[in-house]
Design a protein around this nucleic acid. Structure first.
Ligand code: FES
Ligand code: FES
Lengths: 168, 168
DNA sequence: CAATACTTGACTGAAATACTCGGTTATTGT
DNA sequence: ACAATAACCGAGTATTTCAGTCAAGTATTG
């Protein structure tokens, strides 16, 4: 499982794009300044975002980038997978073959973890992030993705068992 | 968020330990052979496991490692955090300070993701992994950790929206 | 005491990350 | 036409992390 600054920057930039949307496209230089990201690095990140049709670009003066869809229809999982290529937690990449003779003992575990993470990140849209800083409540209430029936089970408040690793 | 082979090996080794438990301690060399992991690397991995009191060791001939608790009381999250040190997905590490002036736009998102992942991995015990290869059902039914009141909400079956990244 | 097996620490090659740099192409206003 | 703008593209590079080796211990058993 790989979650790098590249993926984080991509989400941040998309969010910035969503916030400052106003008819006119936004130039990368602005995003770079506002979010404290290197411009050249941003350019590198936006290439795959454009290829996946998450943003559209306009060249020349007055140009820039625009979201290709409504913020409510762009999900974090898409953005991350567009630039990072995989949220996959298995070692085999899904092929059940990291042990030479079949799947290893833990394949299913990582597989399930991957599905879990993907399911979560594909359930949060850019709009969700724009609307509230305190997205905790709404996000947890929607850990099941929006596309299907909207079952919306109320998960209990965050469990109190994290921070096991205290670090000396 | 960092999930390396070190963490994976740790879980695999602990699982092997749980499977081959039989009064006598298990030697690392056996685990190394069975699971295809370098012995020296395993030694490195077991040091922190012992420090965190997840395993106990017996030196000398006839020695080896034993689980320090019942398999039902050892959770995957503990094992991973013991050797990997963090499942944290935020860039700041929880300090809300990766932007110089306060938290970045996406801090809350990564924070929630971390909590989600931790909650999941702390809800799966070694016993769960030992008992069934098809842990999918039971694991999803217990994505809320066991320690608190056992609310046990039935999450819907896995959503059908993964595999967005097709890869050309 | 000799074999076993854990314990510790330093060390290393290879890969990935997080960038930078230089240049090219399209578009626009003057 | 021309210059300014801003997206595009490809290489190159310093640093860090990963994954693993190696060498030297120390405790325990028979
Ligand atoms: S992780 Fe898939 S076979 Fe080991
Ligand atoms: S991730 Fe915590 S402040 Fe940016």
């Amino acid at each position: 499982m790989r979650l790098t600054t590249k993926g984080r920057y991509a989400v941040t930039a998309m969010l910035d794009l969503a916030i400052h949307a106003s008819g006119k496209p936004t130039v990368l230089a602005d995003i770079a300044r506002r979010q404290g990201i290197s411009l050249s690095y941003l350019e590198q990140i936006f290439a795959p975002l454009r290829k996946r049709a998450l943003v559209s670009s306009v060249r020349g003066p007055g140009g820039g980038y625009r979201l290709a869809r409504a913020p409510s229809a762009i999900f974090i999982g898409e953005v991350i997978e567009a630039v990072d290529e995989q949220l996959e937690a298995t070692r085999c990449g899904g092929g059940r073959d990291c042990q030479a003779r079949g799947a290893c003992l833990t394949h299913q575990l990582w597989q399930d973890l991957s599905d879990h993470v993907r399911g979560y990140l594909h359930g949060v849209s850019l709009l969700d992030l724009v609307e509230h800083q305190d997205l905790r409540d709404r996000v947890q209430a929607r850990s099941t993705p929006v596309v299907s029936g909207g079952t919306r089970v109320p998960l209990p408040g965050r469990p109190g068992l994290m921070r096991i690793a205290a670090g000396a």
